[in-house]
Nucleic acid binder design. Structure first.
Lengths: 362, 362
DNA sequence: TCTGTAGAGGAAACCGGTGTCATATTCAAC
DNA sequence: GTTGAATATGACACCGGTTTCCTCTACAGA
């Protein structure tokens, strides 16, 4: 190092300390000035351009670290014409589902500088599409993630494609369009529940379906019927009643089913909320679970372990699905709409607890 | 209207239609050009400056409406040195609590152009403060809302004040500093529960407290003790056990209390989760609710209505609190840290269901 | 008629980054 | 010692708004 270089280095160190004392948040210009390069070079370093000499990069990085420099996201976003925000558009009535999904997305996003903006919505609102469009366009979202049942809204998917907003849909069935999607095999989950009940010896088994507007309702029903068929049983149309994925609707459906003669000895519910409702109906009608009635739920939501007896249910890896969806989005693979993702990790699994037993009289 | 004015109007109409056909998203420059003013005037209109002639405003607004112009939030944010995002920093283990709070905040924010960014966190993580700081500074958050128990972290509050990020704390007790806060009177809620049990005739009453790290635990305990005192009863230190606001801890605490001789005839729990746990413990020990044991919870979470028998509990207007917090933030009153908000609307209320009855033998 | 003043509006710089394109440096090959 | 490509860097315009400062107009009062 020559004398003049040494002097320059000392001078810049002094300038750096001066700046630190000022307490101001550094901008790219400060970094450039203090490390003796142009701001374009700093920009290159931030954006991991390979066209920067290692020596230069080190010198600049030292200043960046010393000042804990963080690029301004708004300025960056303005230039890039997009933000660093991921939107979660949801209408799922289960709090636990949404929280798990949020958590999963944040697992994937942690440390990347991206953040999660939540947007509950109501598909039946006539302004729904306009509302979502305004949300996405105003915030120039990097991408959106949609769990069921918004994920099943084709008009929304089309809108997002039109305004070129990358999206990942989370669904229980692979939809038609060739796009990014996280799929759980609800058919298999429901079939497993069916086999479990059939193996216990149940013959008269009913199904409390979710609303027909959810694809998952059809998937679970068909999977359940297929599972029963394997065991030589049949799910008659008559044995299916429709609820709304809510506790109250579960009470009603359960009460209706238990009044029938002969009554079913086992009930499979489209989700745990409705299963809890069936518990209530059974108790009101004087039946004891599982002695008089076996019940199986779906989701493995926290309520499943809290009711008595603990509910046998099908566990859905919701957090994992959220994580995968966000990873897919961040990987950028979505931008080209390059095909769907059907990851083996997101397979549902039966969790046997104490709400199922052999039917009485066996 | 003179001939030349008419001609000019026609020309501008034509230009406007041309633009509409282009399909581009309009910028402030487009609006200015098409309405024949400078972009500064458009900016004045966006920001509701009074120094614009009504006639000019109307002319510009017509163009804005025709083109469905939305100002770019990043550009605006860049100039304003802040974003239009509200952060929700939470660590509450109850999914329903968080979802309700989100919903309440979004109720208040709807239509304002602001959005909600969620940020779960872990107070026990040593990087917690650094993490939150990066979150707030990177996104230049407009403000943050903190429900318990993050709201009770003084170090965090101090950090936010230091980096001049407006915040609203939601807490069960009015804290020391003179700042924006939404307070529920947990003391009153717990006292009401106490009076309810005392009026039924219970004498030996136990309290399952939440962790001591939550202020609400102390508030609820003290309020409960005060309510009992009104009725001439005393809450002995011995009658208080400590859980973790979780179902499992409720099971343990319940089991421990029910083994005592004489055992309590009623148990008040710091939240519904733990009450559900006490249900489980009671069942395991062969006691029937409410015949052998009365139970009261706190929060009125969805699980309260789903367990059997439906749980008597204290309802907390969580969504309402979220709404108030966001309104407070948006009103800007927070910026000057102008005193706390103790709104009468957020008073807890006892919801009597079927888990409480007169003690046996009366 | 000549101010003085307040309302209305515009020009240019700025917020903090990026893109484009031109230029400077390095190093292998002739 | 050139030459030429590949690498490395910088100047400057630009993203879409806001702020500062200045001009212009209209109108009340002298």
């Amino acid at each position: 190092m020559t004398e003049s270089e040494k002097a320059a280095a000392e001078a810049s160190d002094a300038a750096l300390e001066d700046f630190q004392r000022s307490g101001r948040r550094p901008t790219i210009n400060d970094i450039a000035r203090l490390s003796g390069v142009s701001k374009k070079t700093v920009s290159r370093i931030i954006n991991l351009s390979p066209f920067v000499k290692d020596e230069t990069r080190e010198r600049v990085m030292k200043v960046i670290d010393a000042l804990a420099y963080m690029p301004d996201l708004q300025a960056r976003g303005l230039a890039f014409r997009r933000s660093f925000l991921i939107g979660l558009i949801y209408n799922n009535p289960s709090a636990q589902y949404v929280i798990d999904m949020q958590q999963g997305i944040l697992d994937a996003v942690r440390g990347s500088g991206y953040e999660l903006v939540v947007h509950p919505c109501d598909l039946s609102n006539p302004n729904f599409l306009k509302d979502v469009r305004a949300f996405v366009e105003r915030q120039k979202l990097f991408g959106v993630i949609m769990p069921p049942s918004v994920s099943e809204d084709e008009a929304l998917a089309q809108l997002l494609a039109e305004i070129e907003c990358p999206y990942v849909r989370i669904a229980s069935v692979s939809l038609d369009r060739n796009e990014a999607m996280i799929v759980t095999n609800d058919r298999n989950g429901a079939a497993e529940a069916a086999r479990h009940l059939a193996d216990l010896g149940h013959k008269r088994i009913a199904f409390v379906s979710g609303p027909t507007s959810f694809r998952s309702s059809h998937e679970r029903r068909e999977g359940f019927a297929a599972g029963l068929a394997e065991k030589g049983l049949k799910l008659a149309a008559d044995d299916v009643v429709f609820g709304a994925y809510t506790f109250e609707s579960g009470v009603e459906c359960g009460a209706a089913l238990l009044k029938r003669k002969p009554r079913p000895t086992a009930i499979f519910c489209g989700n745990d909320e409705m299963a809890a409702g069936v518990y209530r109906a059974a108790r009101d009608a004087g039946f004891e679970i599982p002695r008089d009635l076996s019940v199986v739920g779906y989701d493995d939501s926290p309520v499943a372990a809290k009711v008595w007896p603990p509910l046998t249910t099908v566990k859905l890896p919701i957090r994992e699905m959220g994580r995968l969806a966000a990873e897919k989005l961040l990987s950028g693979a979505v931008e080209g709409f390059t095909g769907r993702v059907i990851d083996a990790k997101v397979a549902p699994a039966l969790v046997v607890r104490e709400s199922t037993a052999k039917p009485a009289g066996r």
